[in-house]
Simulated scan of single mutants.
Amino acid sequence: MDIAQLEKWIGKSESHVERIAPFPSNALAATLDRDDPHYTDGTPLPPLWHWMHFLQLFNLSEVGYDGHAALGGFLPPVPLPRRMWAGSRLNFLAPLSIGSELKKVSTIKSVKTKDGRSGKLVFVTVGHQMFDGDMLGIDEEHDIVYREEPRPDALVQTPPPAPAQWDFSRDIDPSPVLLFRYSALTFNGHRIHYDQPFCVGSEGYQGLVVHGPLLATLLLDLLRREAPEAIVRSFEFRAVSTVFDNETFSVHGAAEQDGKTFQLWARRKDGTLAMNAKAIIE
Rank of each mutant, 00 (worst) to 15 (best):
I10K: 12
I281K: 01
P77H: 04
H252C: 11
G116N: 03
P161M: 07
S110D: 15
P152S: 07
W9D: 08
V124L: 11
D167V: 09
E14P: 02
A255V: 12
G207Y: 04
E229N: 14
S110F: 05
P163G: 07
F249P: 10
S234I: 03
I138H: 01
L215Q: 15
G259L: 10
F74D: 02
V145T: 05
P79N: 07
I10Q: 13
V122A: 13
A279C: 05
T242M: 13
H190M: 07
N26T: 08
A266W: 00
G253F: 08
I281W: 04
S241W: 07
T186A: 03
F187P: 06
A21K: 12
T125Q: 10
I172P: 08
R181L: 02
I192P: 03
T31V: 07
F198G: 06
E203K: 08
D258N: 11
G201A: 09
L222I: 04
L32V: 05
A164H: 08
L60H: 13
Q56L: 10
A279K: 01
Q157W: 04
A279S: 05
N276D: 15
G201L: 00
Q157N: 13
R147H: 04
L57G: 09
Y182W: 04
V124E: 04
V105T: 15
A230G: 08
P76A: 09
F123I: 13
F180W: 08
A254I: 14
T43N: 09
H190I: 05
M1G: 15
E149Q: 14
W49K: 12
L264G: 08
E282S: 12
D41H: 06
K8H: 10
